[in-house]
Design a protein around this nucleic acid. Structure first.
Length: 574
RNA sequence: GCGCCCGUAGCUCAGUUGGAUAGAGCGGCGGCCUUCUAAGCCGCGGGUCAGAGGUUCGAGUCCUCUCGGGCGUGCCA
């Protein structure tokens, strides 16, 4: 059950009864425990409009709410806040129902399911993936898991950068400097190498540049040999990408790269022109936005065809969106792409609107990767750590840690756990902060297992499992219909945090902010650690013991579920 | 030039879309392992929310300006 949602409705009804006006209750979680658990902030603005004294209005609303089962006390405070104290009995009731709901841990499904395409990861197959590419992959994967869990139908699409001007150069480079064997072994590295060489050659020698343009034109015209070389680029790269995705536990429903849409582009442009949306300007075909003030001020059109007749990624994006509407039957598309491309997406979405497309199109932007000097990481230098090396080192660090903890884990167990803990740590750093903020890549922080980190949450989960193991108790066997005895401060705090789970999950899904889940889980794990220190579970008296076991069990399930929604595993021991 | 974003503790960041006394982590200092995993817990210290105006019952959050930083900006993706 979504507690906050529920209370907000109760409050809105009470406001309606007291004032006869349908006004938002503006219910929020109280920051300070002395203000209760939730507070209603909507009375003051309402009183203003109604011309009534706010405290008086608040009093009649509060009286109305006090009779609700969920609320033990509702009191007017300050200029017209209403502080709500939840009834402990009611909280326990919620906990029991969460405890009984093994399938969804009390998280309801959305009322209306969407069909959503999530466009994410989308690496350029000719470029080495590095930490900068990680964000789209990790955030996109988390969003897919989340959206599915709340009931949407989701298609995860890897919109590969497998087409474009670079392939002319790559074909020339492959013929001149390339090695088929090397392409098989280390495709992306080999492509990077020959691209560099070909690029340098083209800069020195105009004939090479001409040759590249010619090869590109041949490729686009369907030339058999060039097509075959291009396909070998694609296939070998895919194998390598799958390897990394496999380590990350990320998968896709479709891999419809840019090349997939190429034969639709003529029609896209012709249609735009026919409808008067695009027009020729300086030899190129452009869409102008004179009618949209924010975009008009920029004075930059969206170019859909270059003067040499070639199409651009904007053209592909339009075709892609149409395809997603007409063939995938989506009503929503999420683009998990670097925030720096926001102008492109604003323009793209504006064009789609002009085309009468009513799908919800959302740019899920994220900040750039910066170095510890706060300057953007440069991709050209070799000083960037490759993705696989990053993963290796995180795993090593995790294994090392487990060896010196004295955990009685076998070498086999440690090597099985290392990827779960190490990669979990990496994913968590990425997801834990607001995605729009720039991302400071700090090696030490990336594989730090302290504080607000993935391993901290996994650790809390593992400790709970250890309690159940030691007690010889099967969590599933816990009776959820027996009364609970929540008394201790840390038990109460824990219980109040637990009942926020459904709200948090839905809020994260609605806003595409996975870090909200991290916030919840971290608070939960902290409260649990505190509880764990202060309240013995196994040695408690029978009444308390049952309660504490149930609390522990729900905490562990929430952590496991929450992490799973982020694409992170929670092992039973570590 | 124009447009977008950002400026919160020494460092890295949250801050629930305008709510009450601004919070975490890391780092620093001091405690806690014969008791369910110390990757932990408890405590202390740390702030002109860049600055100045404005809007109102109420501003880190909204509007204007100034300073500082980042990014984007017609034929790359």
């Amino acid at each position: 059950m979504r507690i906050e949602h529920y209370l907000d409705e109760l409050a809105a009804e009470a406001i309606m009864k007291a004032s006869g006006v349908a006004a938002p209750a503006l219910l929020r979680r109280a920051k300070d425990p002395s203000f209760g658990d939730y507070q209603i902030n909507g009375v003051m603005p309402l009183a203003k409009i109604a011309g009534k004294p706010p405290r008086e209005l608040a009093r009649s609303i509060a009286e109305n709410l006090a009779s609700q089962e969920a609320i033990s006390r509702a009191e007017v405070a300050g200029p017209g806040f209403i502080n709500l104290h939840l009834s402990l009995d009611w909280i326990c009731k919620q906990l029991r129902s969460m405890g009984a709901d093994a399938k969804r841990d009390g998280v309801p499904l959305v009322e209306k399911a969407d069909k959503i395409v999530v466009d994410f990861s989308s690496p350029n197959i000719a470029k080495q993936m590095h930490v900068g590419h990680l964000r789209s992959t990790i955030i996109g994967d988390a969003l897919i898991r989340l959206l599915r869990f709340v009931g949407h139908e989701v298609i995860g699409d890897n919109h590969l950068g497998d087409w474009g001007t670079q392939f002319g150069l790559l074909i020339v480079g492959m013929r001149r400097f390339g090695s088929r064997d090397e392409l098989k072994r280390n495709p992306i590295e080999e492509l990077g190498r020959i691209y560099k060489l070909a690029n340098a050659a083209a800069k020195q020698d105009e004939a090479v540049a001409d040759q590249a343009r010619l090869e590109l034109a041949k490729l686009q015209a369907g030339d058999g040999e060039n097509r075959e070389i291009w396909k070998s680029f694609l296939e070998t790269s895919r194998v390598e990408l799958e390897r990394i995705y496999g380590r990350l536990g990320v998968s896709f429903d479709t891999w419809l790269g840019e090349s997939f849409y190429q034969d639709m582009l003529d029609d896209v442009v012709a249609d735009l022109v026919k409808r008067g949306i695009a027009r020729e300007d300086g030899g190129a075909v452009c869409v102008f936005f004179d009618d949209i003030s924010e975009l008009a001020a920029l004075k930059t059109p969206l170019i859909v065809q270059k003067k040499d007749g070639a199409f651009l990624y904007a053209t592909t994006d339009i075709a892609t969106a149409l395809y997603r509407r007409d063939h995938l039957l989506a009503n929503r598309v999420l683009y998990v792409v670097d925030q720096r491309q926001s102008l492109h997406f604003r323009q793209l979405f504006a064009v789609m609107a002009k085309l009468g497309v009513t799908m919800r199109l959302e740019h899920i932007g994220f900040g750039s990767v910066l170095g510890t000097d706060n300057k953007p990481l440069k991709t050209r230098e070799g000083n960037l750590i490759s993705l696989s090396e990053l993963l290796d080192r995180a795993e090593e660090r995790a294994a090392e840690r487990m060896r010196c903890e004295g955990l009685n884990l076998s070498a086999q167990q440690i090597s099985d756990l290392a990827p779960i803990v190490g990669i979990g740590a990496i994913k968590y750093v990425d997801l834990q902060q607001n995605r729009l903020s720039d991302y400071q890549f700090d090696w030490d922080k990336m594989i730090s297992f302290k504080g607000n980190s993935g391993p901290y949450l996994q650790y809390a989960h593992a400790r709970i499992q250890a309690v159940f193991r030691k007690g010889g108790i099967e969590p599933k066997s816990l009776m959820t219909d027996t009364p609970l005895y929540i008394e201790h401060d840390t038990e109460i705090a824990l219980a109040k945090q637990l009942i926020c789970f459904a709200d948090t999950i839905h809020q994260a899904a609605e806003t595409s902010y996975p870090h909200l889940i991290c916030d919840h889980l971290y608070s939960l794990a902290r409260l649990f650690s505190s509880f764990y220190e202060q309240c013995p579970v196994l040695k408690a008296e029978p009444k308390q013991r049952t309660t504490r076991l149930l609390l522990s069990s729900i905490v562990s399930r929430q952590i496991k579920r929450g992490l799973a929604l982020l694409g992170i595993e929670a092992p039973n021991r570590m």
